[in-house]
């Protein structure tokens, strides 16, 4: 089994709901807490497992905004695990989830240097490395209803841009989505072989704008008033 996420860049609206929900669940979960530094001050910062960045792809007028969530890819060749001198970082053989044993980590940062995807963040308070656990404490919790045995981010996403499943099983929904939509992994040239995949935006016909009539005088005035009042 090779559990992981498939993220649909076509539908992600960049709302950061997955990151917030992740933080909420994991700050009291197995590698808790996700410490915040200066949360209400001038320079708020802290530990997050999931970060969303925003890019512009292409140049105007053929451009597009892409919202790009990134968390641990639970790589097959997880160098972060290979380089760890203490054995705190490990990859579970049964489902491929990469975890950090908080009781063994000595906070040397070496694994974060080895991770190309910026998935690992040191918690300055505990002095240990923290990262996405794929909500391993939800996946097998029989107290939860079956449909909730998924990572918190997947449940939170309002655009259904996050899918969770077994990427080893060619018939799983995630594997089919990767196949059908041309899903890809990031920085393949580094050969980490990430489990998480990204689905590229679909190509759609552009919304035609040439046939829009010229705005009436009343509408022009209204638009002008709106602009002025906003300032």
């Amino acid at each position: 089994m090779r559990l992981g996420l498939v993220i649909d860049l076509d539908t992600c609206v960049g709302c950061h709901a997955c990151a917030t929900s992740c933080k909420e669940w994991n700050t009291s979960s197995i590698t808790a807490p996700l410490t915040d530094y200066d949360p209400y001050g001038k320079e708020p910062s802290g530990v997050w497992f999931n970060r969303i960045r925003h890019y512009e792809v292409g140049t105007y007028p053929n451009n597009k905004t892409i919202n790009f969530p990134m968390s641990c890819m639970h790589c097959e060749n997880a160098e972060c695990v290979t380089v760890c001198p203490t054995g705190a970082s490990y990859k579970r053989p049964e489902d491929g989830i990469v975890l950090v044993d908080q009781d063994k980590c000595m906070g040397c940062n070496y694994c974060s240097w080895a991770c190309p995807y910026g998935a690992r963040e040191l918690d300055r308070e505990s002095g240990t490395m923290k990262k996405c656990t794929l909500c391993v404490d939800r996946l097998y919790d029989e107290a939860l209803p079956v449909e909730e045995r998924k990572p918190a981010c997947v449940l939170a996403c309002p655009a259904h841009a996050r899918m969770f499943g077994d990427l080893d099983d060619p018939q799983s929904a995630v594997s089919r989505a990767v196949r059908d939509r041309g899903g890809y992994a990031l920085m393949p040239e580094l050969n980490y072989n990430p489990t998480n995949h990204y689905l590229p935006p679909r190509t759609r016909a552009p919304v035609p704008t040439h046939d829009l009539g010229r705005p009436s005088l009343a509408r022009k005035v209204k638009e002008w008033v709106n602009r002025v009042i906003e300032r």
Binding site: R53, Y55, L186
Partner: peptide, 19 residues
Amino acid sequence: TATGFNRGTVRLLDQGHTF
């Protein structure tokens, strides 16, 4: 290669964090 958009320019709009 980092984002997978190999055929065009890619420009950062927002890092997504405050500080």
